[in-house]
Amino acid sequence: MSTIQETTPASIRPARTRWAGAVAFEATKLASLRSTRIILPLALLGQAALAWLLGSSAQASGENGYDTAMPAPFIAFVSLQLSQLFIAVFAALSITSEYGSGTITTSLQAIPVRFRFLGAKAAVLGSIGFVAGAVLVGAGTLVAAPAAGSYGQFTPGQLATAMLGAGTYLGLLAMMMLGLGALLRSSAGAVTAAFVLLFGLPQVLPLFTVDAVQEAAGYLPTNAAAVLGTAAEQPYGPDTALAVLAAWTVVFLGAGYAALRGRDS
């Protein structure tokens, strides 16, 4: 309750104030929600568990003569395939829960300009996603490195690549899911869509024997992220991977914005 006593600085310029206000609105809400305090720690827990499992597995396989050595930060990056779901759901719920609870009415009264409303949300969620990505890979490395032992040796450069890649990926993923949530307006729908996009399609598309489908699968967000986070050169380089992720983000956020603007609330 002590936060209530603080006063608003009066010296900020009006145009900036309105964006800052919209960002503060979203940040205040997310910071005080119980779901934030549940979902984000769960992501960390899931990340640590999978990183430990993959790290131990790398060591066990390596000792049995298989070539499974992988830098620990990359093991941590691969472990994101579980924890990313928590971030995706968190981001989607940040808007679908407003529709579910009816508080979207109050939010849009406070910030009636839809572009600013969604833009501020994207900025806050993108930032949370970025920090989450870096933290998850950092924490994952701390767990995976001892588990993998000599089969997980890494350079500081590899750690930086994985942390930066994960931050970028989860930041953009959070924005994609925000756009999807704004489009679907339903928590169940958005969570289902997140599972299909992050789990379903990456599993199913490679089963097709058609070359075009296989190639298209390479451009799914998860696959582009893998390139970005492990500095791979297959099937394309990190620059292309970043462009692919950015394109997905623009498409989803754009669709969400169009829905928010075009439809009645």
């Binding site: 209530i4 006593q5 206000g21 009816g102």
Partner: peptide, 29 residues
């Protein structure tokens, strides 16, 4: 007030209002 479904159920009343205040440069007091 056009909808009595006010705020997120998991949010505290004061923080709901604080968010609204911050969004429109209203003093937090």
């Amino acid at each position: 007030m056009v909808d009595s479904r006010i705020g997120h159920p998991g949010q505290r009343a004061a923080s709901h209002l604080l968010g609204l205040a911050r969004s429109n440069s209203i003093p937090a007091c």
